[in-house]
Design a protein around this nucleic acid. Structure first.
Lengths: 146, 146
DNA sequence: GAAGGTAGTCAGAGATACTGACTACTTTGG
DNA sequence: CCAAAGTAGTCAGTATCTCTGACTACCTTC
């Protein structure tokens, strides 16, 4: 675990910086009741609605955890649960207008941070970084989908 | 927050893969009572002992949280608290023999994962990755120290 | 239409992290 | 030398996130 500068730590530091900026931007825009875990789930809700199990698998949490987070998002008015017309066991989690206002704010913050990184590293290095991480994902991500 | 393949997500996926492997190795070696948060703190304990406040700052948690985690590590026999000879307000958190056995196991797992990544990406790309992340750290890490 | 699988919830628990208030000790400035 | 201010750490209380296990309701298949 210790290794002069463990590459895991380096990955984490950059990741955390990105996440902090995105959440700060969302909070600054007045959406202060969104927590990181809720945000992660919210990003994964499909345009046409998602099932709880899909969200759970995609976010790599249990159905119970996903249900808990969706409860909170529902209370905050970011999603609603509708019956799934095709399967009476399931319910579809759908984005509300409030969520559709919020998501671009986070996305803009991410783009801003990426632009800063590109400016610091240079365009070529930034592209290499993205490319390398994308390749790495092939052997590190059990859920290549989104 | 959404951006085809957000670089934050890519960073996180690789980081999580590394962390999971390290903790799996530690647990497989029989240290099953160590949690990720405890592990993060444990890695930061200095050879000569660390103060709680130092650990808290380094791990970016409050003193209270650090104290709680050190309590658990102490109960598990991984660290001990001794009086600080230089300052009677403080106490030094020191690694025990058990922790000194454990830490190399985690480090070995990290090295193994790095070797796999190098083999998959090629030596040149792996070095570029480390180098780029190290540069990035200069603008993303408020605590460049360890 | 019975058997087994899938979607989701309920109940209970533990880990992680926070804020605020406090004690004990050290350092500093008059 | 001592009062004021600062630092180290703890205690109490709370919120968040996540889990396991057990359950109901519904669907699919033979």
């Amino acid at each position: 675990m210790t290794d002069e500068v463990n590459i895991g730590v380096l990955l984490f530091v950059a990741y955390r910086a990105m996440e902090n900026r995105a959440f700060a931007a969302v909070a600054a825009a007045g959406y202060e009741d969104i927590t990181p875990a809720q945000g992660k789930l919210l990003q994964r809700v499909d345009e046409d609605g998602s099932r709880l199990s899909e969200l759970a698998e995609s976010a790599q949490v249990t159905k119970q955890t996903a249900g808990y987070l969706v409860d909170q998002l529902e209370r905050g008015g970011y999603v609603e649960r509708c019956p799934d017309p095709g399967d009476a066991r399931a319910r579809l989690v759908r984005l509300t207008g409030k969520a559709r206002d919020l998501l671009p704010i986070g996305a803009a913050a991410v783009s801003e941070v990426e632009a800063e990184w590109t400016s610091y590293l240079g365009k070529r290095r930034m592209e290499q970084l993205r490319d390398t991480l994308t390749r790495l994902r092939e052997i590190t991500d059990p859920y290549i989908d989104r």
